[in-house]
Structure formats: C-alpha cells, structure tokens
Design a binder for these strands. Structure first.
Lengths: 113, 113
DNA sequence: ATCCCTTATCGCAAATATACGATTGATTGT
DNA sequence: ACAATCAATCGTATATTTGCGATAAGGGAT
C-alpha cells in the first residue's frame, strides 16, 4: 500500500492489530479459519473441495493467514496439515478484546503514545 | 476486489465480520478509533492536526469507517462531529468475541452452514 | 532415477486501496 | 448576496489484492 510522504510510525499494538484485522478482512479467510476451528486441522486439498476457488487461490489465502501468524503448516507428506496457531490466536483474541473493551471502560485505557 | 467466476455466497456473519475486520485493517484507522475512544468524539480537523496526512486522506479513512458502520457523523456546523457508533461497535465486539471464542469452546459453535 | 501426489509460486489481468492536491459543496456569519 | 470555514468529493498516480491457469518444487513410492 502506498505510504504517506512522511513515514508514520504507529505503535506496535496498532500495527499488530491492523495486521490481524487485515488478514481477517476477507470472507474466504474467515471461512477457512472457521473450518479450521471445527476440524482443528485440515489439508489444502480439503479446502479446495469446499470452496469454489482455484487451488492457487486457496494457497494464496493460506499464505496470508500464515504470514499474519494465525495459522501454521505442518509437513505430513505428501500433504501439508494446517492448524490454527494457538499462541498467536490467543494473542489476537486478547488484542481485539482490549481494543473493544476500551470504549466500555475508558479509565482502563492506558495509551502508549 | 475481483470475485471468483463462480459467485460465492458466504453467510451473513462471515460477511459482517470480514467487513469490520477490513475496516480495522489499516493502522491509521485503528488510531482514529483509539482517538475517538479517548475523546469520545472529534472533528475531522482534529485528526488532520494529529496525523501527518492530507485532509482528503483523513476524510477517506473516515468514510470507510463510516461505511463499515463503526463511526457516525453528526452535523455540528460548521464542523462535523464524529463518534463511535455504539450499536455497531457492540455488534462488532460481539462478533469478534464469538469468532475467537469458538476455538476455546468448540461445543458452543453452532455454524449456520 | 522416475513417477505421482500435493502444494507453492510465477505470470498475468482486473479490481481495490491508499495517498495527494485541487475543487466542490454545505453552512454560518457579515 | 457574499465571504469564510470546514469537510467531502474528484481526478490522478501508484501499490496492493484477488483471482486464474500454468509451472515449479517437495517428498514418498516404485
């Protein structure tokens, strides 16, 4: 994405929240995660059968979820088993929680900036 | 965004979550919301002073937040007062909560599909 | 080494997103 | 009616995203 002429340095929490949110910002990726939540894990091929999308497209969405840290792949030759990345999942959960909580309890909000 | 040749109809919850997440998927918009949380409300001009971005850029981000339903504008001539849209904010909060909760309590997950 | 299965990556096209400056539009006050 | 103020929109440039088909890459089995 194009950056402002003057580079803006947001604090880490903001960047992290935006990164997770961006990864969740597509219905297909939400559905993939919901699928993973139910199955606990799955293979790329499973998703290709579930979604009317090309294999390369599914792979791309998985890559984005992986890059965001929300899922992780495990080699199970000849397939790859994808699972939710528990650690980051919890992290994301907490970041979203704290973000939304702030408005309820303003006094609990301690901004970094 | 380009759609698949075969149109995919995701369920409403998925679309809504993705819509909120997409709106949150940019650090500037996160910061705007944090600012709104602290100030409870603000004018566009306030933000233009806070962020090193052009007025048109700020306005565009506000539009996206408004389109997503997260904020609302109120005419306070000659300015426009922006506040968080309480109703949708709560809605978003709950949708995110339920999305992240699912993995903790699988049995509580009742998928529509 | 070769083949097979599975998934990732490449190359391309089209749509969206992000940013800016300039202009328009709306409203208040003179 | 006119000017001033503030925010939205337009036009433009560039970057990113989304999707596809085709190809490459990795690993096991023959």
């Amino acid at each position: 994405m194009r950056r402002a002429l003057q580079i803006i340095n947001y604090n880490d929490d903001t960047e992290e929240l935006a990164r997770y949110a961006k990864a969740l910002g597509h219905p297909t990726r939400i559905e993939i995660l919901k699928y993973l939540e139910n199955q606990s894990c799955c293979f790329t091929g499973d998703l290709v059968e579930v979604f009317p999308l090309a294999q390369s497209t599914i792979s791309q969405h998985l890559k984005e979820l992986k890059d965001a840290g929300l899922i992780q792949g495990e080699l199970k030759p000849p397939k790859i088993k994808y699972c939710i990345n528990q650690e980051n999942w919890t992290k994301a959960k907490l970041i979203f929680e704290s973000f939304f909580k702030k408005h309820d309890y303003t006094t609990a909000y301690l901004p970094k900036t």
